[in-house]
């Protein structure tokens, strides 16, 4: 227990405290000019301690202090009904649903593309450059077009946002799976040849199981990318609901504290998603006879 404390908990805690201290210093530095302005207009000359407290309690600070974000986050997560549009749980749920839908479609699409690339020479030669090109287009430029075009043909709501997630998440899966499906040893491929195994049998019994570790590694990247896609997809929809909407609303009305707590909610969702994929990956690996680490 003490070893665990010394090896893991202590460094993490020290780092966290350091970041918080820096954050407070930053908050003071960034909020001070506006506070000075306010005080001057009110004709007040507060002592430093009073002035410092004022920089930390502005309703719309340039950089909110950690405790302001924490308080806002706590209130909007735990003290509101989850059906309320002020609840972060409600917004995270909306973003999560399109993230998961997009992630599922993206993973499936990525696997299909990889299978095609590994098995069809023509696809191997032609598809990869297009896939890489697709990822060089900024998603911020593309997202509004997808939303607008789909809205024009009557598709709104979850699907357009999920498609943006798909667009971001199929890529790591496709690249990882191409590598994974090509990962079997020459020896194993020769072995299948001596059995006169069909390509289909070689795929099911060798290539696919061999690619599983690659699949989960790339799914971790893909699920995080999906979340980014879902948030970006919420920006041009008129900011109705979702973490992206909270961010956009916050920036419209200079609700910096709201923006930061929405960011915190987003990163917690991201961490949970990545951890969930990792957990499933470990379970699958154990089911496939993986040597316990």
């Amino acid at each position: 227990m003490t070893d665990r404390f010394r090896d893991k908990l202590l460094p993490v805690t020290v780092l966290l405290l350091g970041i918080i201290a820096l954050w407070y210093a930053g908050a003071y530095a960034m909020n001070a000019p506006f506070q000075r302005d306010l005080d001057r207009r009110a004709g007040e000359t507060p002592a430093f301690s009073e002035f410092f407290v004022r920089t930390m309690t502005q309703p719309k600070p340039t950089l909110p202090a950690p405790h302001q974000v924490a308080q806002n986050f706590f209130e909007n997560t735990f003290l509101r009904k989850v059906t309320s549009s002020r609840s972060l749980v409600y917004h995270a749920g909306i973003t999560l649903s399109s993230t998961l839908a997009g992630f599922a479609i993206g993973t499936l699409l990525g696997i299909l593309i990889a299978v095609g690339i590994v098995h069809v020479t023509a696809l191997d030669r032609s598809l990869m450059p297009w896939i890489i090109t697709s990822q060089t287009i900024p998603i911020l430029a593309l997202a509004p077009m997808i939303i607008v075009v789909l809205a024009a043909v009557g598709i709104t709501g979850l699907i357009p946002k999920a498609l943006i997630s798909t667009y971001l998440s199929f890529f790591p899966v496709a690249v990882g799976m191409v590598k994974g499906l090509r990962s079997p040893d020459v020896l194993h491929l020769d072995l299948m040849r001596t059995y006169n195994a069909s390509r289909w049998q070689t795929f099911w019994k060798l290539r696919l199981p061999a690619s599983v570790p690659f699949l989960f590694a790339s799914m971790k990247v893909a699920v995080a990318a999906s979340l980014v896609g879902a948030i970006v997809g919420e920006l041009p929809t008129g900011a109705v609901a979702g973490i992206g909407a909270k961010l956009l609303n916050g920036s419209y009305y200079s609700q910096t504290i709201d923006m930061f707590s929405a960011l915190v909610a987003g990163s917690i969702v991201a961490a949970l998603l990545v951890a969930a994929v990792g957990l499933v990956g470990r379970l699958v690996e154990r089911g496939m006879g993986g040597r316990p680490a």
Partner: peptide
């Protein structure tokens, strides 16, 4: 194509995700 021979390689080349019995079953399944 008529599966006239069994081949044993320099390395055992067992599939790590299959148990010993499933490894022996591999050619039989195919």
């Amino acid at each position: 194509e008529q599966r006239a021979y069994g081949y044993v390689f320099q390395a055992a080349g067992l599939f790590p995700w299959r148990t010993i019995e499933r490894n022996v079953a591999l050619p039989l399944e195919i």
